[in-house]
Design a protein around this nucleic acid. Structure first.
Length: 820
RNA sequence: GGGGAAGUGUCGGAAUUGGCAGACGAGCAUGACUUAGGAUCAUGUGCCGCAAGGCGUGCGGGUUCAAAUCCCGCCUUCCCCA
């Protein structure tokens, strides 16, 4: 089939899309190489998990990222736009258990399929840089990073609870715990918490620095999410003592209310609980501890939940007044926040208040709000906010609560029983997973030498292939007959490997570095590539990763910098988030809900370019929307119109010169808007501006402008503007009009400001803020002239009825508001 | 529960960030061309009203010459929670 015949058949995406994809690939058009003579631009889109199928949400995320990377390239940047796969993780293991396929096989088969899906998008990925986190040559370096963090004291081991199914005898991930009663997804048994020795990274050491976003262009929304997640609060740590003499440390943000503490509450998991529990209370305490382990933290923290708790039978001494107060346990105190123990000040904290009322504990007012009747602890209906004047507070009585805050800390420090303290909600990062399909934690335990990292020359610690899954779901690494046996890296005696693997967030914390040089074997990345490309200039991905992935990757970078491996403050300079595409039923898209929209079907039917354009057009990118296929026909119609405008320009028919001026004006105005919208990630209005321009061009062609120089300029600029959005059809038509290959290596056009300037504007005339007239006036109209014209309007004269206006408000070159 | 967002025609959405509400697209209606149309082209399309005109951006207040946009209080929906 020859070229001309294709063209005359009209716009048939299938005839052009694969053709160009293959040519671009063969020519290495999108290969990114170091070029010191050009400014670089590292554009990164969050890497997909190879679940088996790309869904429309992936395209929604990636298409605009690709379009913008293309736009940057046309603006003279040397652009790198890599892709890869976040290939470890639980779904592969579930598939293994369910379908008896090896996770490796399942994962790599999925990757193969998804590569083809990704290629059909026509994105400018440099596939030579593809990185797959489950490749040994990748996870070798994930493990290497672990050992570095360990050597720098940033990885440590401690006991920590996991969700555990006592029937299956296995730990469960959050998504394996179902329902309000929190039962095991496999067997339905209620889940309990079990303490295991696990590895942690000291993310909290970087809490303070993570609060500082200097050097980033990140959305305020993300900064706020992270700041709240890190959750810094200032207060005091105070040491109470149990009757038996054990120190019992608490953190409080309100040290000023210390005199109002009438009891203490420990988390049921607190280490002192058993020691504090008296024989008479033991049954009740043990029973309560068990039921507390059955709940999620989210449930436990719920403020409006009915308060529960049990008295331990023991007392503690309040260090500021020597009073003996009861020690309770309650699930609303979490072991993971602060010290897992609180002083309860029911008069000024609502949760403590509800607890006190339920169990008949004393409520003692220590702060009297200004101008209110004196509060009575016994009868007050709710806690009151802690601001006002101190009462019943020893030496602090009479001062304001604000002053009392620092005074109380001074008092504690003088007495040596507390100090000013800062607490963070951020916890250390638990990275141990009792799973097979992840990077093995490269640590070895020796009876004599303890824990030691696997030496670099023995990395990677390879996952064994010959594993089996017991129906219980226990980790195959633990069950493997020989894998865990090794020798101690220090004394060479027989030793045991750690059988846990790493959280996949570890893999995704540095994938942007592996892209730099995925085959490099002398380090995690080639330093030359690093120095040229890093940091990531534009990072795009879902807002849902604001807290976990994006905090982990920042932590990882800062820790790497302090270890001399990475450079600079932040790994990603600019961040932009897309919203989520929900299913047509307005629910989150998922296989289990059966509401997944597959791009393949759409591409086959409408072509990749139309799908790309529609995805950019159908919703605000940063907001997302429920999917709706209805509008996609409009996008196809538009591309057909574009096709027809290029193929059938018509012949010049001596048009009115004003038609040509107006055409050029519209073209350059559109270019101005499209350029701005690319810069600000407003992709939907890029497409609508292009549609609008095409509508104008059809009218101009109708009026005889087709084939004129103005028309040809319009076509040229149109295709250049279209190229980042619809790369295939733009390339095809660019070739058709005889321009040199490739359109994607052309420069972004410049706006002709003079041509874009309006000669006339519509002056809005309001009376008392209501629209009364619209008058076309010269664009350079002066203020006084505009007022005069507005006042002379018949509509205004009628309303004035001979009166003179009280006030005339003028917005230059836009609006006149006449106030009567 | 905590944290973060968002509510605009029949639908997806636009609005130079305080200045013409509803761009663009879908849908619908009418017409043209057609043996035919899930093709193409043209025109119309927020609501009430014959009209003049009035009303309209989740609901209720407020600030302002002017509010979808700013402030206060509600309601609803969505996202994240190691």
């Amino acid at each position: 089939m020859n070229e001309k015949r294709n063209i005359s058949e009209g716009y048939v995406p299938s005839l052009i899309e694969t053709k160009w994809q293959q040519k671009w690939h063969a020519d290495g058009l999108y290969n990114a190489n170091i070029d010191p003579n050009k400014p670089k631009h590292y554009a990164l889109t969050m890497l997909p998990y190879p679940s088996g199928d790309l869904h429309i949400g992936h395209w929604y995320a990636m298409t605009p990222s690709d379009a913008r990377a293309r736009f940057m390239r046309m603006n003279g940047y040397n652009v790198m736009f890599p892709i890869g796969f976040d290939a470890f993780g639980l779904p592969a293991e579930n598939a293994a258990i369910k379908n008896r396929v090896h996770p490796k096989q399942w994962t790599y088969k999925n990757i193969e399929f998804m590569r083809a899906q990704l290629r059909s998008m026509g994105a400018m990925w440099d596939w030579r840089r593809e990185a797959i986190s489950a490749d040994p040559e990748y996870y070798r370096w994930t493990q290497w990073f672990f050992t570095r963090l360990y050597k720098h004291g940033l990885a440590y081991r401690k006991m920590s609870p996991v969700d555990f199914c006592p029937n299956c005898n296995t730990t469960l991930a959050r998504e394996q715990v179902w329902g309000d009663d929190r039962h095991c997804e496999r067997c339905g048994t209620p889940v309990i918490k079990k303490d295991l020795d696990q590895w942690f990274f000291r993310t909290t050491s970087y809490a303070e620095e993570l609060l500082d976003y200097a050097g980033t262009d990140w959305p305020d929304r993300v900064r706020t999410l992270q700041t709240n997640w890190i959750g810094k609060s200032q207060g005091a740590s105070v040491i109470f003592r149990t009757e038996q003499g054990d120190p019992l440390e608490i953190f409080t943000t309100r040290p000023d209310t210390l005199w109002g503490a009438t009891f203490m509450v420990l988390s049921p998991e607190h280490p002192l609980v058993d020691k504090l529990t008296t024989p008479a209370q033991n049954d009740a305490v043990q029973e309560y501890k068990l039921q507390a382990t059955r709940q999620s933290d989210i449930e436990r923290e719920a403020v409006d939940k009915e308060k529960t708790g049990v008295f331990t039978g023991s007392f503690a001494i309040n260090p500021v007044n020597g009073e003996k107060i009861q020690v309770w346990i309650a699930d609303y105190v979490l072991m993971s926040y602060g010290t897992g123990a609180i002083m309860a000040v029911p008069a000024h904290d609502q949760r403590d208040f509800e607890f006190a009322r339920k169990f008949g504990l004393e409520v003692r007012v220590v702060i009297q709000p200004e101008g209110a009747d004196p509060l009575d602890g016994a009868s007050m209906p709710a806690s009151v906010p802690a601001s006002g004047t101190m009462v019943n507070s020893g030496s602090l009585t009479g001062t304001s609560a604000d002053e009392a805050f620092t005074a109380a800390i001074r008092y504690l420090e003088e007495k040596g029983t507390g100090k000013a303290s800062t607490n963070y909600k951020l916890r250390d990062w638990l990275i141990s997973r009792q799973r097979y399909w992840g990077a093995p934690i490269p640590m070895v335990y020796c009876g004599e030498c303890g824990w030691n990292p696997v030496p670099d020359d023995q990395l990677p610690v390879l996952l064994p292939d010959d594993v089996e899954w017991k129906p219980t779901g226990e980790s195959p690494l633990k069950l493997h007959p020989t894998w865990k046996n090794t020798s101690c890296p220090v004394c060479a005696k027989p030793a045991m490997r750690e059988t846990d693997t790493m959280d996949t967030f570890m893999c995704s914390s540095w994938y942007h570095l592996r892209y730099l040089s995925p085959k490099y074997d002398r380090g995690p990345f080639d330093p030359q590539e690093y120095d040229y490309w890093m940091p990531v200039d534009t990072y795009t991905g879902g807002i849902e990763h604001a807290n976990m992935h994006l905090i982990y990757t920042r932590f990882f970078h800062k820790a790497g910098r302090d270890m001399g491996i990475m450079k600079g403050r932040e790994p990603m300079t600019q961040l932009r988030n897309q919203g989520m595409v929900l299913g047509e039923d307005h629910e989150k898209m998922s296989k289990s809900r059966g509401n997944v929209i597959a791009p393949d079907v759409l591409v086959e039917r409408y072509g990749a370019d139309a799908v790309r354009a529609f995805l950019m057009f159908f919703a605000r990118w940063d907001m997302g929307a429920p999917w709706n296929s209805n509008g996609i026909d409009g996008t196809v119609r538009w591309l057909r119109r574009v096709w027809s405008a290029v193929i059938e320009p018509g012949t010049p028919a001596n048009p009115d010169p004003e038609i040509l001026v107006a055409l050029r004006r519209k073209v350059h105005q559109t270019l101005r808007q499209v350029t701005r919208d690319f810069e600000t990630f407003e992709f939907n209005t890029i497409v609508s501006a292009l549609m609008e321009l095409m509508n104008e061009m059809y009218k101009a062609r109708e009026a005889g402008a087709g084939g004129t120089p103005a028309w040809q300029e319009a076509i040229n600029l149109y295709l250049l503007m279209l190229a980042p959005v619809c790369p295939h059809v733009a390339e095809e038509l660019w070739q058709y009009i005889g321009k040199p290959y490739s359109i994607h290596t052309q420069s972004w056009p410049k706006v002709d400001q003079a041509a874009a300037a309006e000669q006339e504007i519509t002056l809005i005339v309001q009376v008392n803020g209501k629209l009364r007239d619209r008058i076309t006036v010269p664009a350079d109209i002066q203020d006084e002239a505009a007022k005069a014209i507005a006042l002379a309007s018949p509509a205004v004269q009628k309303l004035l009825g001979g009166r003179s206006p009280r006030q005339v408000i003028l917005v230059p070159k836009r609006l006149v508001n006449i106030v009567l």
